[in-house]
């Protein structure tokens, strides 16, 4: 469990982080999402001890981290790249060994990871000979090769195509499942929603929302298109308090409402006249927060 407690960071008049507190739980993938200048990179650097915050602490299992306590953190910064002329395998092994893993274990892990990332045949090629998505996968392999206790990846989905994202995320999922907190910083709201368990929404250095993806996405809404939405809304509003239906809004003959469950919504719609279409809609994270931010 990686816990950030009231992290604040500013320089001059600019505030990068303002009392940021959250916990990235072991066994779960936590995504820190935010728009540009949200403070994601600064947050990640604070976590990794590359920047000392003005206030606040970073703790792992209730142990306050000092510089040097992060030797077995797997870290991947944004805008990264490797050594172009170095062989892929050598690169992964080298970076893994800095964590203290033995040569044999590093080599084995590198081969395992390359195999799982479908790069088994690229191990002896110089990095510069690989495509962009392949390099992005190598970066992930290098991050995980030391079997880290915490994984922190900035701009997590950069350079990955759909297939690569699936491969990488399945690997990170397996790593998280082994009891490791996995923290991803990203501006890709869709990917965060798809792959993270928990999300922290960061806006101009402050946490705007935090919680599980399920929770943050909000409840399902139902939309009914009918001839007279206003009338339908009034009839439903009259039943408020009796039924579990809540009218949200009406626009362009479309009535939006919330119900306890799909069955209740269907029963409600069955009671309405001139229904043209009926659908359930669940707002995405981006719809919930990105546009507002």
């Amino acid at each position: 469990m990686l816990t950030l407690k009231e992290i604040s960071l500013s320089k001059g008049k600019r505030t990068y982080l303002d009392e940021v507190s959250f916990t990235a739980k072991a066994g779960r993938i936590t995504a820190v999402v935010g728009t540009r200048s949200a403070g994601r990179t600064e947050l990640v650097r604070v976590i990794m001890g590359l920047i000392s915050p003005d206030e606040g602490t970073v703790e792992l299992e209730d142990f306050e981290l000092d510089y040097g306590d992060r030797q077995n953190f797997g870290y991947l910064p944004a805008e990264r790249g490797g050594y172009p002329n170095m062989r892929v395998l050598d690169q992964i092994v080298y970076l893994a060994r800095l964590h203290g893993i033995t040569l044999g274990a590093a080599e084995r892990n590198a081969l395992t990871l390359l195999s799982r990332l479908e790069l088994a045949d690229r191990g002896y090629a110089p990095l510069k000979n690989l495509s962009g998505t392949e390099i992005a996968r190598v970066d992930i392999a290098a991050t995980l090769a030391a079997d880290p206790d915490v994984v922190v990846i900035d701009d997590a989905f950069a350079g990955l195509d759909t297939q690569s994202t699936e491969l990488v995320m399945s690997l990170l999922r397996a790593h998280a499942a082994s009891g490791v907190p996995v923290l991803l910083a990203t501006d890709n709201w869709e990917a965060a929603q798809a792959y993270a368990d928990d999300v922290v929404v960061l806006n101009q250095g402050r946490i705007s929302a935090a919680g599980s993806v399920e929770k943050l996405r909000g409840a399902v809404k139902y939309r009914v298109e009918l001839t007279d939405a206003e009338a339908a809304a009034k009839s439903l509003e009259k039943r408020q308090g009796i039924s579990d239906v809540t009218v949200l809004d009406t626009a362009d003959n479309v009535l939006s409402f919330r119900a306890a469950d799909a069955k209740s919504a269907a029963q409600t719609v069955a009671g309405l006249a001139d229904v043209k279409s009926f659908e359930s809609v669940r707002p995405t994270l981006a719809e919930q927060y990105k546009e507002a931010l």
Partner: peptide, 22 residues
Amino acid sequence: DSTASGSKSSASTSADDSDDEL
């Protein structure tokens, strides 16, 4: 309120547990 983008969430929020929203 969703429009209050500058609102500050100063509570210690667990990523999993907090119910903070915009």
